[in-house]
Simulated assay, not measured.
Amino acid sequence: MPQNFLKYYIHIVFCGIFLVTQAQITHPKASPFATVEQEVGLAKITVHYSRPAVRGREVFGNLVPYGRIWRVGANESTKITISSEMEVTGNVLPKGTYALYAFPKADTWEIAFHTNTTHWGDGRKNYDPSEDLFRITVIPKQIPYHQENFLIAFDFITHNSLQMQLTWANTQVVIPFSVHTEKQMDAEITKQITENPTAQTYYEAARYLQEQQKDFERALGYLNKALELGGDTYYFHRVKSLVEAELGDYESAIKSAKKSKELAAKEGKDEFVRMNRANINQWSVLLKEH
């Protein structure tokens, strides 16, 4: 091949490649990508998914056919990552990342937590049910409002559980998660109090027990230790009053609440002044009844 022709050929090929590359246009996606993160107890759930819109179409049973795998969104498969072991309706979900798939029907859905996260979309013929970690069955419900873009959200969040809600058009399904926060917290409290506890250590341990409505005697011991090491603070006395009231010692609870109110007023914490005042009135009534 003549040298001049070779140079011309290379030039034409290069220009063609350049023009093809330059012709690629970045455009907005019809189903925009979204990420939702939610803490629950000491753990975190992260979901990456895309949000298709209804756009006047019939969704379930039509756009999303019944009885066929759905990627729970659009574009690539929906991914869910959990930072520590959880349970879903009694099934153990180890720490890690999973593809989330659904098999909708008119009256029930199957939700699959799938270990193969490499498939694009629903995987189609490459999807292998044996790679499901497990499946659960959930009941879809009709909601009294219209959700235009597919939405994954979390609600009913406690230290130990939450609900993941999949909502689109007028349909919603709920997936319940539970975490082992109590076991983790008991270990954490023991570790921190054994190693090098501070006033804040004792306070946070007591506050957790008070919020969980458990071990009030132990919580009171921790609060007394917090006050011994850290001195008077409105929030130490505030939680102490709540614990004493749970133990039925309304006289001590009122005394602690008055101290908390006094200290909160000095720091301009009006909300704590109001909360303490309300509790003092409530416990004064209960004290008279006893």
Rank of each mutant, 00 (worst) to 15 (best):
G67C: 14
G67N: 10
G67V: 11
R68S: 13
R68M: 12
R68Q: 15
R68P: 05
I69G: 00
I69T: 12
I69F: 01
W70C: 11
W70I: 05
W70D: 04
W70L: 10
W70F: 09
W70N: 07
R71S: 03
R71P: 08
R71C: 09
V72M: 05
V72H: 00
V72T: 15
V72S: 11
G73R: 10
G73P: 04
G73V: 04
G73A: 08
G73N: 05
G73C: 11
A74H: 07
A74D: 10
A74P: 03
N75E: 15
N75R: 05
E76K: 08
E76S: 09
E76L: 00
S77E: 08
S77W: 00
S77L: 06
S77D: 06
S77H: 13
S77A: 13
T78N: 04
K79R: 15
K79I: 15
K79C: 02
K79A: 02
I80Q: 00
I80E: 00
I80W: 00
I80S: 04
I80F: 04
T81S: 13
T81R: 11
T81L: 02
T81G: 02
T81H: 09
I82E: 01
I82H: 02
I82N: 13
I82Q: 01
I82S: 05
I82K: 01
S83L: 09
S83M: 10
S83D: 10
S83W: 03
S84W: 08
E85S: 14
E85I: 12
E85L: 12
E85H: 08
E85F: 05
E85A: 13
M86S: 08
M86N: 04
M86K: 05
M86R: 06
M86H: 04
M86P: 03
M86A: 14
E87H: 10
E87I: 05
E87V: 08
E87P: 00
V88T: 04
V88S: 10
V88L: 10
V88F: 02
T89Y: 06
T89S: 13
T89N: 12
T89R: 11
G90P: 02
G90A: 09
G90Q: 06
G90I: 05
N91M: 14
N91P: 06
N91A: 07
V92F: 09
V92M: 11
V92E: 12
V92S: 15
V92G: 06
L93N: 05
L93V: 04
P94D: 12
P94F: 09
P94M: 07
P94K: 04
K95M: 10
K95R: 13
K95Q: 15
K95H: 08
G96C: 07
